[in-house]
């Protein structure tokens, strides 16, 4: 048993390393992952900032304080969704035939990819914090809460990596995997508290927006970053994360095993 767990760890570490090396060798992947949040932050801050600067979305006087946690959740989710695209690409490469013929853990191929994508998310988040500070953002609750905020977002993104791993395994090619992710993710992101307060939405949409995981993630993140009320968002988010992992880890691994 101890041996089994040790092998799982070795396998996952070896695959994670391979994926990270690819990120190092293909720095454009990291580059565009970093440019995307900078563009989002800039656009949203200056396009909506003026209109929302004096509303409920201007915390401590600035929209950027409200905006940054929201965009960070969104960008990290998009980062998590890269997992499926990466895996779908891997499945079309020859390497996967070798991995399948090795006496290695079946889940490591997927887990190694999710970890590598989380590493990339860490880099992207660091860039966002730096750029956010330039735009006037500030953590108001101290370093510990700031770290909790980042951890929450990272974990949420990680759980979505597994949803994405599943769609990636189900997709015939990387393009389909990409489309499949974005079709679901856009309505979820925009009908949430990520960019604007839910109270500004029509009633029917508020119901949806108030009870979906992205809103929980954003509200929890905002609480630890700038001190807005938590409203139980943290526990609901953690339950969502556990639920997503419990469903999608086994489902993805099963699909990988079955996929020829």
């Amino acid at each position: 048993m101890a041996n089994y767990i040790l092998n799982q760890i070795t396998d996952t570490a070896a695959i994670t390393k391979r994926n990270l090396l690819r990120y190092v060798r293909l720095p454009q992947l990291i580059f565009f992952s970093a440019v995307q949040p900078i563009i989002f932050l800039t656009l949203f801050n200056f396009v909506f900032g003026g209109a929302l600067g004096s509303s409920g979305a201007a915390i401590h006087g600035k929209y950027i304080n409200y905006l940054l946690p929201g965009i960070m959740v969104q960008v990290t989710m998009f980062g998590g969704l890269q997992t499926g695209i990466g895996l779908a690409t891997d499945m079309t490469s020859g390497l996967i035939t070798r991995l399948k013929s090795l006496p290695m853990s079946r889940s490591a191929v997927l887990a190694g990819r999710t970890f590598a994508d989380s590493f990339r998310n860490i880099i992207v988040m660091a860039i966002m914090v730096g750029y956010g500070y330039i735009l006037g953002f500030k953590f108001y609750k101290g370093i510990l809460d700031a770290l909790i905020m980042l951890a929450i977002i990272l974990l949420f993104g990680y759980s979505l990596s597994w949803v994405s791993a599943f769609t990636g395994m189900k997709s015939k090619d990387p393009e389909t995997a990409q489309l499949a992710s974005f079709v679901f993710i856009f309505p979820l992101v925009f009908a949430s508290a990520a960019f604007v307060p839910v109270s500004t939405m029509p009633k029917w949409l508020q119901h949806f927006a108030n009870n979906q995981p992205i809103t929980y993630a954003v509200e929890a993140a905002r609480h630890f970053a700038i001190g807005t009320p938590l409203n139980g968002a943290l526990w609901k988010l953690i339950l969502w994360i556990i639920g997503i992992l419990l469903v999608f880890v086994p489902l993805s691994v099963y699909t990988y095993r079955k996929r020829a």
């Binding site: 391979r18 690819r22 060798r25 490469s93 020859g94 390497l95 035939t97 070798r98 991995l99």
Partner: peptide
């Protein structure tokens, strides 16, 4: 197994 298509990572 050495498959028909080289099973190695180009960027490693």
């Amino acid at each position: 197994l050495a498959g028909q298509f080289a099973a190695i990572d180009e960027y490693l």
